[in-house]
Design a protein around this nucleic acid. Structure first.
Lengths: 334, 334
DNA sequence: TTGTAAGCGTTATCAA
DNA sequence: TTGATAACGCTTACAA
């Protein structure tokens, strides 16, 4: 690999001069600058990042811990990465442990991150690393960090206002004439873990209360998967009196599963019951009928998280519990 | 940050001795080793990776270029990462350009990769980096590499045998009594770009020919999206005489879209027509009725790719055009 | 306008 | 058993 030394030797000047020419730092005779640039080009010189990091003490890498990125988190990540790249940083991804309660694995991941001495760190949703543990580590090592969407206001967190999202979604159902709107989904939040049942339920209750409409909740137990929950909810739905004419479901995945069960029982959608999801996942448009859904502001979250990091790296203190406004973007089908 | 020097100073020995104790390299007096380890522990010493990389000339990072990982590629990535991590490497992810024809962006990504001087490189499906270009660069810099699933036998490629997958899938449909099996999907391969229409069609034709059954192909143009293609195929399907009693579809996404159109026309699944997908995506179990699908050996591909890299790094030459055997794993619903 | 030299934290050679 | 020391490639204070 060609180094500054090589270029200096060929050009017949000192390393420092080559360095000056390459970084536009101070005066360099014009013909020498030209020559250095030409040789650099020809030899395909590239700076040795490790050497630079060692010398300057700071890398230009930002480490993000993720779980298995689904399409939603992927959107966040792409926006996050693009924003930071534009600011001259490169994003390094690490995979969290399989299981959040695996302390050894958690340590391993955090160590892998801190060993790299990144310029900053990000904790993505479902990374399976306890937020408090990670934050303690980052604080200790003075690594600027951001947590994405952790249902946890106590840290520098960027999240989506799901309460408002569900509120507007339920309002939409009411505005098109539905009166017996039910909520189907989880009903508690799990701080640091992305499950936001209580928050969403709040939005539902707020919307129904405002209109004086009767509330009906089909609660899914925390340990039940979204698709299982959606499918099994059919019994409670069938038993309900009066039967809801609309259901606000926790996510698109759960909604699709619920719709499949409705089909099994010959219940017509949306004539007998309207179903609305949450997330605007790809499955929403593959369902039959197409699923109406609420789009989360994933890109905005990614950008906001990146901005928060850039701010913290520049020494600014972010506002506490920063929440990105909910942005409804698409509603399809019925 | 605490360094070897600090530990040496505290312990009252030389850096070299600390280094020896920590790396179990050569003789160290037992009590000193104990003490060094204790202090290391207490101070939370961690080696500076950049310094190590600078000194040794090789990092223990493996860079992978990806596009937006969907659930299938994510499976590959997780297996890939796990395998390499077990071997002591860490995987660094870079995002490819948005558009494969963007030469500037392609250069940028490849430069970002090579600047990091990784121990090896991997090119994931849909990374939007031209395979030939990347491979040329890797060869030039002597970076061991592997390409995943690129429909390109000319490089060190690990892929899935989709021909065989479709062949077995069609055979399955025949075995359950279907005779008018059609193929719906793309019909050409795009080398280096993951589209494998011709390959799959070959599998279909082979299966039908073997039984002497009539073939029917609903071809989707390359520029049409999977969901659009699936939806629009309904016209050709309705016009077909005789009407197929089963359809082997390119992917689950396309199959779900096609099924939605069948529902729109009141055609009963699977009574009138059986639909079978490919990929075993999550959408398969959210469809109604559940979509029978063919599972790709994603984890096996991830592991195989990792193994190929480990082999190349150890100086072994991999067999050309290595293909992971197709592994059918799940078939659901109908 | 240019060059010398120190130093970042490791690894590893060589001598003691 | 141990330690002095050079080197990796870069940045940068200082001198010329």
């Amino acid at each position: 690999m060609v180094s500054l030394k090589d270029i200096a030797a060929i050009t017949g000047v000192s390393i420092r001069t080559v360095n000056r020419a390459l970084r536009n730092d101070g005066y360099v005779r014009e013909d020498i600058r030209k020559q250095v640039l030409e040789i650099t080009q020809r030899l395909g010189y590239r700076p040795h990042l490790a050497a630079r990091t060692l010398k300057t003490g700071r890398s230009s890498e930002i480490s993000a811990i993720i779980g298995s990125l689904d399409e939603l988190h992927m959107e966040k990540m792409l926006a996050f990465e693009r924003t930071l790249r534009a600011a001259g940083y490169s994003v390094h991804i690490l995979f969290g442990p399989h299981d959040a309660s695996d302390d050894l694995e958690t340590d391993r991941v955090l160590r892998a991150l801190t060993d790299r001495r990144p310029a900053a760190a990000a904790l993505f949703p479902q990374a399976h690393v306890p937020v408090a543990r990670a934050v303690a580590q980052f604080d200790l090592l003075r690594i600027p960090y951001v947590v994405l969407d952790a249902m946890d206001e106590s840290t520098d967190n960027v999240g989506i206002d799901r309460q408002q999202g569900v509120y507007e979604s339920v309002n939409y159902l009411i505005s098109v004439g539905r009166r017996n709107v039910a909520y189907l989904g989880y009903t508690s939040d799990r701080p640091g873990d992305y499950v936001s049942g209580r928050t969403r339920l709040d939005g539902y209750e707020r919307a129904m209360r405002a209109r004086g409409l009767p509330q009906r909740v089909f609660a899914i137990e925390p340990h039940v998967s979204e698709s299982d929950g959606g499918r099994k909810a059919i019994d409670a739905f069938l038993a309900a009196v009066p039967r809801p004419d609309a259901v606000q479901v926790y996510t698109d995945v759960m909604a699709a599963a619920f719709m499949a069960s409705l089909h099994d029982h010959g219940i017509r959608i949306p004539e007998e019951v309207a179903v609305i999801g949450f997330d605007n996942r790809r499955v929403a448009e593959l369902c039959w009928p197409r699923l109406t859904t609420v789009s989360q502001a994933n890109q905005e979250v990614g950008v906001a998280a990146a901005d928060m990091l850039l701010g913290k790296m520049a020494g600014r203190t972010p506002p506490p519990g920063w929440v990105v406004a909910f942005v409804p973007r698409q509603a399809r089908g019925a």
